[in-house]
Design a protein around this nucleic acid. Structure first.
Lengths: 253, 253
DNA sequence: CGCGAGTTGTTTATGACGTAAACGGCAGGG
DNA sequence: CCCTGCCGTTTACGTCATAAACAACTCGCG
C-alpha cells in the first residue's frame, strides 16, 4: 500500500517478476496482448485467464491491458479472431491456389482442423461467442472465410442457392465436428491437473458399453473425420450439374 | 449488515422477496435446486446464474445451497445431467418401443434436438463440460444413452465395430450440429438485451456474401437438419449386411 | 535548454462473485 | 426439559473485472 520501494510509472517493476514468462521487451500493444492471451490459454486453459494474470504474464500490471483492450470480452473476441485468421497465414492451406472446389474444401477442412487441434482450449470460444454476422446461419466468425468459400463454389458452377446450402452444410459439419473433437481433449480442466484418473466408473450396469469399450476409446478421430468429410463432399457433388462433377473424389491429400 | 429486522434461522425471510419467483414451498433439496437452476438459466442465461441469485430465486440465501450441492461446478454438472435425462422422460421419444434402428435413431435425434432448442442456454454446457466417461469418444454425457444406442444397433445386426463407428458418427453429428444451431440463437447475450441491432457491417468488401445473404439468413435450420440426418442414416445403412438393410429410409417422421 | 501535453503503466477503490466457517433457532428423542 | 443434530443465515476472505486517480517517462515546440 505505501511501499516506498515500489517504483511507480513506466519503468515499472524493475526486474520483471520471474513469472513473467513473456518478458516485456518493448511496450504493449493490442496485438501483443492478444497473442499472449492465445498462448496463455493454450498453456493454462481458458478459465485461468484473468486480466491480472495475463498482465503478469506480460510483465505488467493487469490494468495496463485496459489501455489497449476495452475489456475482457473484447479481448476474447480478439483471441477468437486471431486464431481464426491463422488459417490465412497457413502455407499448407493457401486457399487461393486450389485445384477445384473439392481440393479447396479439403484444404479448408484440414487447415481448420489443424488450428482446432493446435488451440483446443481456444476453439470452444469460436462457437460460443456471438458471431460477427448474426444473421448468417450457421455463424462462422470470419466474413473472409464465408466470402472466399462462396466465391469458389459459385465459380465452380454451383447456383447461388446451392452454394449457400453447401456453405451451411459444410460449416455446420466442420465447426460442429471439430468443436466436439476438441472438447474431448483436456479442455476445461480445473487448476489441478486431472485430480481424478478416471476411476473407471462402475460399468457393470452398461454391459454393451463395456464390451465395445475398445472400439470407442481408440482414438480414431482423424479417421472418422476423413470419412465424414468424404461423405459430405460426395453429397455436395450431387448438387452440381452432372457434367461439371468431378469424377472421383477420393484422391488428393 | 446489522439489520435488526432481518430474521435469523430456519424460518428465514418471512415474506420471500418478490424476486423469489419460485416460492420456497417446503425445504430445499438437491433436485429442487437443480431444477430451479435449469429454469433460471432458461430464463436469464447461463452467465446470470450465480449462487446468490439462484438462492434468491428459491427464496433463500445463496449459501444455503451449499448444504445440498458441493459447489457451483457440481451444480452445473447436475444441470447438464438433468437436461440430458429429460430425453428419457419424453413420451414422444420412448426409445424403448421403436420400429427398427432407423426409427430409433430418428427419435433420438429429434428428441435431442427438441431438448436443445428447449434449453438453448444450457446446451453448450453439455459439450463444454468434462464428460462422465472421458475415454469414450466422442464424449456423450449419459452412459445410459450410449448403452441404449449400442444395444439397439448390435441387435439390429451391426457388428461391434460398426456399432461403435455408428455411435461415433451419429453422436458427433448430433451434438455438433445442435450445439452450433443453438449457439446461433440468443445465447451468451450479456445482461443487456442485444445492445446492438446488427449495424449491418459494411458488407461492401464481401460482394458474394451480400448477394447470397437471403439464402443464408433464411432460417432453414430444421430443413438442413433433416437432410443431414437422412444423409447420415443412408451412410450408416451401408454398414449393414445387404440383406438386413431397410429398403427406403425416407418415410415416417 | 526547458516546459507542457500526451502516453503508458501503476495504485487505489468498488462491487460482485465463490466459498469456508461460525452462528442461531427449530425439532424431536431422551 | 434439555441435548443434539439439522438447516438456513451471517460473517469473512480472497479473487475477479473495472473505473478513476496518479506518477513517470517521451516528445515537440519555444
Amino acid at each position: 500500500m505505501q511501499d516506498p520501494d515500489s517504483p511507480r510509472g513506466r519503468g515499472a517493476a524493475g526486474v520483471p517478476s520471474a513469472d513473467a514468462v513473456v518478458a516485456a521487451r518493448g511496450g504493449l500493444s493490442r496485438q501483443r496482448i492478444i497473442d499472449a492471451a492465445v498462448q496463455y490459454i493454450d498453456e493454462h486453459g481458458l478459465r485461468m485467464l484473468t486480466m491480472q494474470r495475463l498482465g503478469a504474464y506480460l510483465g505488467v500490471e493487469g490494468m495496463a491491458l485496459y489501455r489497449y483492450v476495452p475489456g475482457r470480452e473484447a479481448l476474447l473476441d480478439g483471441v477468437v479472431e486471431a486464431v481464426v485468421d491463422e488459417l490465412f497465414g497457413d502455407p499448407d492451406v493457401h486457399l487461393e491456389a486450389h485445384a477445384g472446389w473439392v481440393d479447396y474444401l479439403q484444404r479448408l477442412a484440414h487447415g481448420l482442423r489443424r488450428i482446432a487441434l493446435a488451440h483446443p482450449e481456444v476453439f470452444p470460444l469460436v462457437a460460443t461467442r456471438p458471431p460477427a454476422a448474426p444473421w448468417v446461419r450457421p455463424p462462422l466468425r470470419s466474413l473472409r472465410w464465408i466470402e472466399s468459400m462462396l466465391r469458389v463454389m459459385t465459380e465452380a458452377g454451383f447456383s447461388d442457392e446451392n452454394a449457400a446450402a453447401v456453405y451451411r452444410a459444410f460449416s455446420s459439419f466442420l465447426l460442429g465436428y471439430l468443436l466436439l473433437e476438441v472438447s474431448g481433449r483436456g479442455v476445461e480442466t480445473g487448476p489441478v491437473e486431472e485430480p481424478e484418473v478416471a476411476p473407471v466408473e462402475d460399468l457393470d450396469d452398461y454391459p454393451i458399453l463395456e464390451r465395445l469399450e475398445p472400439h470407442l476409446s481408440v482414438d480414431v478421430a482423424a479417421q472418422d473425420f476423413e470419412e465424414a468429410l468424404e461423405a459430405l463432399l460426395d453429397r455436395v457433388a450431387l448438387l452440381l450439374p452432372r457434367r461439371r462433377r468431378p469424377a472421383r473424389l477420393t484422391e488428393g491429400k
